[in-house]
């Protein structure tokens, strides 16, 4: 019944900086390897279904309409919609990955507590978690890209830039939401509100399905706040080759600023919650 006596190895140096962050990413990857199915459904299949429903189903209603052609700049609705959905799917995947799983890791699974009992610091854990989400967005964005190529909704290599912009847009939102999730103590009723009052309106009113110029003039400024509008403009502009440099700089600046603020807030929240 007795096991062998344990051996004791030499001390090893503590990992620092990105080396530590990468170990966090690796831990999350190990989890993902066993639990990938959910991710495929939510981040690849879902945008694909949206594309089929609106790009093809709804598109067939309007592709003959002159009004529609004017709004989409003359391209088929499928081609108009596809790059924008790339940004939408990045934001939606980010929303899902940045809400319940974060709270759960603090509160129910308590896995963050386990990680920070090791040399990994709360700040490294925070950055590792965000890096992991970014990798998820890159992977699912890549899968989506392959699909829209099969649908013939890709016009040229500009779509690769759209991919990058979509991930940036998703991360700008993710970092803020992770910080918010890390501050939640309760069962997460707040997430329902976030999904319905932030994610959904953002998806619907950020110029994804129709240009925001179709909205009443008073609500248009609301879209300017939404990271998804900036992401959509960038992704669609890059994919259709209509992006102007000055506009692009503005959109990029806004998204990068949100990202920086979000990362700092997340690191701060992790530190507060894990070192009480």
């Amino acid at each position: 019944m007795m096991g062998e006596p344990l051996t004791f190895a030499d001390r090893r140096p503590v990992l620092a900086g990105w080396a530590a962050v990468l170990r966090v990413v690796e831990g999350l990857w190990t989890w993902y390897r066993r639990n990938w199915r959910a991710a495929v459904v939510s981040s690849v299949l879902q945008p694909l279904l949206m594309l089929m429903a609106f790009g093809i189903g709804f598109g067939s209603l309007i592709d003959t309409s002159a009004r529609a052609a004017q709004a989409t700049g003359g391209v088929r609705y499928l081609v108009y919609l596809a790059p924008a959905l790339l940004a939408v799917s990045a934001v939606q995947t980010a929303a899902f990955e940045s809400s319940y799983p974060i709270l759960s890791s603090f509160k129910w699974r308590r896995t963050y507590e386990a990680v920070t009992a090791t040399p990994i610091t709360p700040g490294q854990l925070a950055v590792g978690q965000l890096t992991w989400i970014a990798l998820r967005l890159i992977m699912s964005g890549g899968a989506y890209l392959l699909v829209i190529m099969l649908f013939g909704a890709v016009r040229g290599p500009g779509v690769l830039a759209a991919w990058v912009f979509a991930v940036l847009c998703g991360m700008a939102f993710s970092a803020l939401l992770v910080a918010f999730s890390a501050a939640q103590e309760q069962e997460g009723g707040a997430f329902t509100a976030i999904f319905r009052f932030v994610v959904l309106p953002m998806t619907l009113f950020s110029g994804t399905f129709f240009p925001i110029s179709q909205l009443p003039r008073v609500v248009q400024p609301l879209a300017w706040v939404s990271p998804l509008w900036h992401g959509t403009e960038l992704a669609r502009g890059a994919a259709l080759g209509t992006l102007q440099l000055s506009a692009a700089a503005g959109h990029l600046g806004y998204l990068v600023a949100l990202l920086v603020v979000g990362v700092q807030l997340t690191r701060w929240q992790f530190r507060v919650r894990l070192t009480r």
Binding site: V14, A20, R23, V24, E26, T30, R34, P119, I120
Partner: peptide, 17 residues
Amino acid sequence: TELSVRDNLHVYGRYFG
């Protein structure tokens, strides 16, 4: 709880470098 017994050890050990 969403990993196997062995994976729990593997993942944790990696955090120590």
